[in-house]
Amino acid sequence: MSPLSATNVTTPALSASEFERLARSRLFQSPPALDAPIAPGDDDLDGRAASFPTDLTAAAVLVPVVAGSALSLILTERTEHLSSHAGQIAFPGGRIESHDATPLEAALREAHEEIALDPAFVEPLGYLETYRTGTGFIISPAVALVRPGFKLTPNPAEVADVFEVPLAFLMSEANHRIDSRIWRGAERRFYAMPYGERYIWGATAGIIRTLYRRLFTA
């Protein structure tokens, strides 16, 4: 485990209205281009490793922030039998299909399919930079507020569990760390944000890190 910085500070907790104003002012209102040269990715901490895929599949995820008395982020635990990212902590999301008009539409469709999140409760706020994964995806993260009153039901074919993590915890750089493991014969470093028994890492942690940077350091 590596510390990020000796100057880590705790990000102040925000109300739903404060978060909405901040997000609308700092997020992209249109999805960034998939071929943006500065897009963050799994290889950021390893100097853009040459072994990473170049032919990437377009995908989208919903970054759903629950507008409760204390903001929280909805995450899922993927089932163990999936072909990619099995058993990992993830945002609701998946491939962008030909019938999806925008990445947001794809993210909302996938969130409804995976956890039965009714789009009527979702207030889109904007996009983060696209994110490249070592498993061959280029992800468009769509950030949204989720109004109270929703009910979630995990689709057992894809989702083993659905849960919430306090946004204040995830937006505090003191809770971001750098871990490493051997992957495809080389050591890879990645962001991780363990929360209780949940090990949030890889692309999910990378997107959370991007959200933190976009909102609080941009």
Rank of each mutant, 00 (worst) to 15 (best):
V122E: 11
D55W: 00
A86N: 15
A203P: 01
A39Y: 03
A39G: 04
F190R: 01
E173Y: 03
L125E: 15
P92L: 15
L27A: 04
N175W: 06
I115L: 13
S17M: 13
F190G: 00
M171Y: 04
R184S: 15
G93H: 07
A174T: 14
T7I: 00
S17C: 11
P40K: 08
A107P: 00
T76N: 10
F121Q: 11
T11F: 15
G202F: 00
A203D: 00
S69I: 10
S25L: 09
R188F: 06
D43Q: 09
F121A: 13
A90H: 15
Q29V: 06
T204M: 07
S30L: 13
G47Q: 13
G47M: 13
R147L: 08
L45R: 10
R188G: 02
P103K: 09
F137G: 02
N8I: 15
A157T: 06
T7L: 05
L215H: 08
E114G: 07
A106W: 07
P3H: 13
A39L: 05
R21E: 15
V143F: 01
T210G: 05
R78D: 09
M171V: 02
A168V: 11
E114L: 10
A120S: 13
E80G: 06
L75E: 03
P166Q: 12
L167S: 01
A168Q: 12
A49Y: 15
H81E: 14
A101L: 07
Y212W: 12
G149A: 03
L45V: 08
P37S: 06
F150T: 05
P148S: 07
E123G: 03
A160L: 06
P148Q: 05
D43I: 01
L108D: 03
R209E: 11
E20I: 04
L145Q: 07
R184I: 11
V146E: 09
G206R: 00
P166V: 12
P53W: 02
I89L: 09
P148E: 03
E113M: 11
E20D: 08
E80P: 03
P166H: 10
E105D: 15
V162Q: 14
I208L: 09
L75C: 03
R21A: 15
D42C: 10
L71Y: 06
T54P: 01
Y195C: 12
S83W: 09
R24A: 11
E173N: 08
F169Q: 07
I178Y: 08
N175K: 07
